[in-house]
């Protein structure tokens, strides 16, 4: 599903170049649930940006579902993001003047899906995250956990190949975090490939594979038996 070979990325800092990613080799198969860990400055954000086609590497190859991601125009990048990827953000990033349902429908809107089908699909995914009854509520009327679940429904709405979650539980308390992780595990059980960037070890332990980043390199890539989030709730 994801094939990354020898990925380099550096940013100019003043006159010097800051080498952030120093040759990353990484691959993910369909259906994997992977957490990416690392301290700040390890390059994990840059790595996620590149995975999410929000940024491009300087060197190296990136294949997403066998499609090379290289030198894309803004337009094509937008298309690929819409088609291949679902984003889950730490701060949820729901649009605050749209109802939960309309928020979920947004990626479909940009896909050009007609209104009726869009709302049907969105409602289906809201149901899936257990928030069908909250469809007409504005984000301000939802709790943090509910917001993140709406965001997950939104990420799922366009039926992407890969879900990318950036600290999905970073703004949530432990109990809510585990509820969200339970949802993520369920979605993974249905076969969706999911990548989570986190710095919380307990969250990482709920994934099937942990990739440790340090100073721009993968220092450890271990497969583990995931802890069921439900067990901790």
């Amino acid at each position: 599903m994801i094939e990354i070979t020898d990925l380099h990325k550096s940013y100019p800092v003043g006159n010097r170049k800051l080498h952030v990613l120093k040759g990353i080799n990484f691959s993910a198969q369909e259906g994997e649930l992977i957490s990416i860990m690392g301290s700040s400055g390890s390059g994990k954000s840059t790595f996620l940006n590149i995975l999410g086609i929000l940024d491009e590497g300087d060197e190296g190859k990136y294949l997403l579902d066998n499609t090379p991601i290289k030198n894309l125009s803004e337009k094509v990048a937008a298309n690929y993001r819409n088609q291949f990827l679902g984003f889950i953000f730490q701060s949820f990033n729901l649009i605050n003047y749209k109802t939960a349902l309309d928020n979920v429908a947004l990626p479909l809107y940009y896909q050009g899906v007609n209104r009726k089908e869009r709302l049907e699909k969105s409602l289906f995914y809201l149901e899936k995250v257990g928030l069908a009854d909250w469809a007409d509520h504005l984000p301000s009327e939802l709790s943090g956990g509910q917001k993140q679940r709406v965001a997950i429904a939104r990420a799922l709405a366009s039926d992407p190949k890969v879900l990318l979650a950036d600290e999905p539980t970073g703004a949530l308390d432990t109990k809510t975090s585990y509820e969200v992780m339970d949802l993520i595990q369920q979605i993974n059980d249905e076969g969706k490939t999911i990548l989570i960037v986190t710095h919380e070890p307990d969250i990482a332990k709920m994934t099937k594979r942990i990739v440790h980043l340090k100073d721009g390199l993968i220092i450890k890539d271990e497969r583990i038996e995931p802890v069921k989030a439900m067990a901790n709730v």
Binding site: G52, L54, E74, K75, A78, N79, R81, N82, Q83, F87, F89, N93, I95, L106, P107, Y110, Q111, R154, S158
Partner: peptide, 16 residues
Amino acid sequence: TKEIGVRRALGAKPSA
């Protein structure tokens, strides 16, 4: 800015 960024991340083309 953030909202527009989110829209872009969700697949909004610049033209949109």
